[in-house]
Simulated assay, not measured.
Amino acid sequence: MPLYWTIDSRKRLFTGVGEGEITFADAISLLEALAGAKALSYRKLFDGRAVQSAMTGDEVLAVCARIRAYHDQASVGALAMVGTQEQTVKFARLLGALATADRPMKLFTSVRQARSWLEHQQPG
């Protein structure tokens, strides 16, 4: 699987990175791991600069629906996403679903900046 993550319950922090083509199954596995670990309220840092989507438009919509369903179930923690400018445009719909939650969210082009911002956010 091209998604890798660490869930640190002591710091209440999820850190993820992706590389290569991401499928619908990959995205759902990541979301289910977050929910299963009861880490939805944790602060999250995700570096997706090396990710390319292999999802269809309908699959992206299904991922968005799953994200919104999680938002309705529990509070979600701050999110720092690292990506390229091109990815921001390409994944606008998915980013919109992520932004619907009542939580701080910011996009970055460097992990260092994202980590610095996230460290100033309140753990969930």
Rank of each mutant, 00 (worst) to 15 (best):
L3A: 03
W5P: 00
T6E: 14
I7F: 00
S9P: 15
R12L: 11
L13G: 04
L13A: 01
F14A: 15
E19S: 14
G20Q: 01
G20I: 01
G20W: 05
E21R: 07
T23F: 15
T23C: 09
F24Y: 15
I28R: 05
L30P: 01
E32M: 02
A33K: 03
L34H: 06
G36K: 03
A37N: 11
L40D: 14
L40A: 06
L40K: 01
S41Q: 13
R43A: 03
K44H: 03
D47W: 05
V51Y: 01
V51N: 04
S53R: 00
M55W: 08
G57Q: 06
D58T: 12
V63H: 09
R66H: 11
I67C: 05
I67R: 00
A74I: 04
A74L: 01
G77W: 15
A80I: 04
A80G: 04
Q87K: 15
T88K: 10
T88V: 14
K90I: 15
A92P: 08
L94W: 05
G96W: 15
R103Y: 07
P104D: 12
P104H: 11
M105C: 15
K106Q: 15
F108V: 02
V111K: 06
V111E: 00
V111L: 04
R112V: 00
A114G: 04
S116P: 04
E119K: 13
H120G: 12
Q121K: 09
Q121S: 04
Q121M: 08
P123C: 06
